[in-house]
C-alpha cells in the first residue's frame, strides 16, 4: 500500500467520466461476455445453419413444389431475412430481461457502478450498447451463412444486420424498462417471452406474407417490430419492393419504439438507484 507512482487525483477527470461513462459499462459487459465466448460463437454459427437448412431444404422444397415462388423469390430467400430478425429479437428478449434483474438485484453491479461516478443514464446506455453489440455478432454470422446459401442476392444484403438489430432494440428497450421496474421475479420474463415475443414473431409476416393472415389478425404484424424489421430486411437482401411511405413507417416505428423504451429505462433506473 505504498504511494502509487501516478497520482490518481491527477488521473481522475470528471469531464472524461461524463463523456465516456457508458463506454466503461460496455467494456465491463464485454469482459463478462468473454466468459461465454465459445458458446456465443458456437450458437452464432450453428443457429443459422440449422434454420436455413431446415427452411431452405426442408420447407422450401415443399413450398416451391406447391406454391412456386413467394414474393417473387424462392422460399429460402423470402424467409431468411425473417429468420435473422427473429433470431436477433430472441437475443434481445433474453439480454434485456434477466441481466437487468441481475444488475439491479441478484448481483447488483449497477448499484456498484452508481456508487462510483457513473449515472443511471450512463449505466443504461452502456447496457444498451452492449446488447446491440451482442445482437450484431450473431447477426453478422447469420448474414454470412445466408450469403453462403445464396439467400441474400442483393448487394445491399449486409444492411439486414442493421435492420435486425434495430428491430431487436425496438422490442427490447421497452422490455428493458419493464425489467428495470420489477423487484420480484415471479416468472414475468417467461410470460413476456411466450405471450408477447412469440406471437409478435410468428404472426409478423415471417414464415408467410402478412396478407395470408385473416384480416382481423394482421394488426399483430403492424404492431410487431419483427414485421417492420423483416420487411426492411427483405428490401435489402433481395430487393423486395413497397411504397416509400411504408418504408418510412417501418424505420420511424422502430426508431421511435427503441428511443422511447431507452428513455423510459433511464427514468426507471434513475428512480430505482436513488433510494
Amino acid at each position: 500500500m505504498s504511494a502509487p507512482a501516478a497520482d490518481p487525483a491527477v488521473l481522475i477527470d470528471p469531464a472524461r467520466i461524463r463523456r465516456f461513462g457508458a463506454l466503461y459499462v460496455l467494456e465491463h459487459q464485454i469482459r463478462v461476455m468473454r466468459n461465454y465466448r465459445s458458446s456465443i460463437v458456437a450458437t452464432a454459427i450453428g443457429t443459422p445453419f440449422i434454420y436455413l437448412f431446415a427452411f431452405g431444404i426442408g420447407i422450401g422444397t415443399l413450398v416451391s413444389a406447391n406454391a412456386g415462388r413467394v414474393d417473387g423469390v424462392d422460399y429460402l430467400t423470402f424467409v431468411a431475412p425473417a429468420l435473422i430478425c427473429m433470431s436477433v429479437v430472441g437475443i434481445a428478449a433474453m439480454e434485456f430481461t434477466y441481466p437487468i434483474m441481475l444488475g439491479f438485484k441478484w448481483n447488483p453491479t449497477f448499484v456498484g457502478m452508481n456508487a462510483a461516478p457513473l449515472s443511471a443514464r450512463q449505466i443504461v446506455d452502456g447496457v444498451v450498447l452492449f446488447v446491440a453489440l451482442r445482437m450484431a455478432i450473431p447477426a453478422v454470422a447469420y448474414y454470412v451463412v445466408m450469403a453462403l446459401f445464396g439467400a441474400a442476392p442483393s448487394a445491399w444484403g449486409a444492411g439486414v444486420v442493421v435492420t435486425s438489430v434495430l428491430a431487436g432494440l425496438a422490442i427490447g428497450t421497452p422490455i428493458m424498462a419493464y425489467a428495470a421496474s420489477i423487484t420480484e421475479d415471479k416468472g414475468q420474463f417467461a410470460v413476456i417471452g411466450r405471450v408477447i415475443v412469440l406471437p409478435l414473431t410468428l404472426f409478423s409476416g415471417t414464415m408467410f406474407p402478412l396478407e395470408q393472415l385473416p384480416w382481423f389478425l394482421q394488426w399483430i404484424g403492424w404492431l410487431s417490430p419483427v414485421w417492420h424489421g423483416t420487411e426492411l430486411g427483405r428490401q435489402l437482401t433481395y430487393g423486395a419492393t413497397e411504397p416509400i411511405w411504408l418504408t418510412v413507417i417501418h424505420v420511424g416505428y422502430l426508431v421511435v419504439l427503441a428511443i422511447v423504451g431507452w428513455r423510459l429505462t433511464v427514468r426507471v433506473a434513475t428512480r430505482r438507484l436513488d433510494r
Binding site: R16, E27, N107, P108, G112, A116
Partner: peptide
C-alpha cells in the same frame, strides 16, 4: 464505498473486479 451488501461482479475474477471498477473512474 464499501456497501453493506457485496456487489462484486461474481462473473469476473478477483483481479478483474478491481480493474473493471477502476475503469469507472476513467483510470
Amino acid at each position: 464505498v464499501v456497501p453493506q451488501a457485496d456487489n462484486l461482479d461474481n462473473e469476473l475474477r478477483v483481479r478483474d473486479n478491481l480493474i473493471v471498477y477502476g475503469r469507472y473512474f476513467g483510470l
